[in-house]
Design a protein around this nucleic acid. Structure first.
Lengths: 146, 146
DNA sequence: TCAATATCATTTGCATGCAAACGTTCATGC
DNA sequence: GCATGAACGTTTGCATGCAAATGATATTGA
């Protein structure tokens, strides 16, 4: 009988079973589904920004970033592009001179219900491989690791 | 008694409950954990590339991209940066002149077990809010929507 | 054989996504 | 009142991530 030394750290590491890898791949599939269902040529972050603005009305740019889980640099780029598309407005805050107040334009407002409809379809399609119970379970578990 | 028309598409759309939004936020948290645990200043895609190369040895660049769920343009950038760091090698394929054959350098090889150890830690920390059963459930459900 | 097709790698353009540094403005506490 | 620190928005730099176009090379099927 002999004992064989084994480097345990080299065994059992399957990249495709790691949560980070799976999150990346799942995000890719979702992005595909998003792109083929979305209206108005919006990206996922642009979509989230419009939806949030529809909920909260006027809000400062950085606060809008926090409400949509975006860095200050990221939300700035998103806001710039949505402004260029005419979907949102930005005005200086007269009380706090540091702030820009962001809001939906009427053109942005008119997109909201179509966007919500598309959003529902996108979520449904992404979760289509799961039955109703599994869908709830997945969302519940994902919520715990945010 | 009157009936009231309701635009159903405007009700019940909670951004934070959509699978795409949750995937994005979960990926952000994972990226944070990754960054504070990884060795050698690698990014997640660079990490995946090294791990896969350690598994498969020599492989063409595009095939390596498929093995790591990366677009041809994305894997090219990752390969370029890993080459610049001296962790991988690329040589022309003598049989198929279209191909570049990618492999780990000895410096890259020597990183692998530390990377796997870090990878295990990163996955564990990401999943730490869940108990063992929940972790298995989440990974199983994620696998179904890839 | 050889034309149609597919694959490989590259490049460009656009859009996240984050860190870090910066100047401006505001709020707090002494 | 006023210094300290916090928050706001901007900019730069780096790294994904994908679509689309391009040129070179292989494969195939008639």
């Amino acid at each position: 009988m002999v004992t064989v030394p084994v480097k345990t750290e080299n065994l059992d590491y399957a990249l495709e079973d790691q949560v980070g890898f799976m999150l990346r791949v799942a995000s890719q599939r979702h992005a595909n589904i998003f792109q083929s269902n979305i209206v108005g040529n919006l990206t996922p972050t642009q979509f989230s920004t419009i939806i949030r603005l529809a909920e909260v009305g006027k809000v400062s740019q950085n606060h809008l970033g926090r409400l949509t889980a975006m860095d200050v640099a990221t939300i700035k780029g998103v806001v710039d592009r949505l402004k260029a598309k005419g979907l949102i407005l930005s005005e200086p805050d007269l009380v706090d001179k540091r702030r820009s107040v962001i809001s939906l334009s009427s053109q942005g407002e008119s997109l909201v219900s179509d966007l919500k409809r598309a959003g529902r379809q996108i979520s449904a399609e992404t979760l289509a491989p799961l039955n109703a119970k599994e869908q709830k379970t997945l969302l519940g578990l994902l919520r715990k690791i945010l």
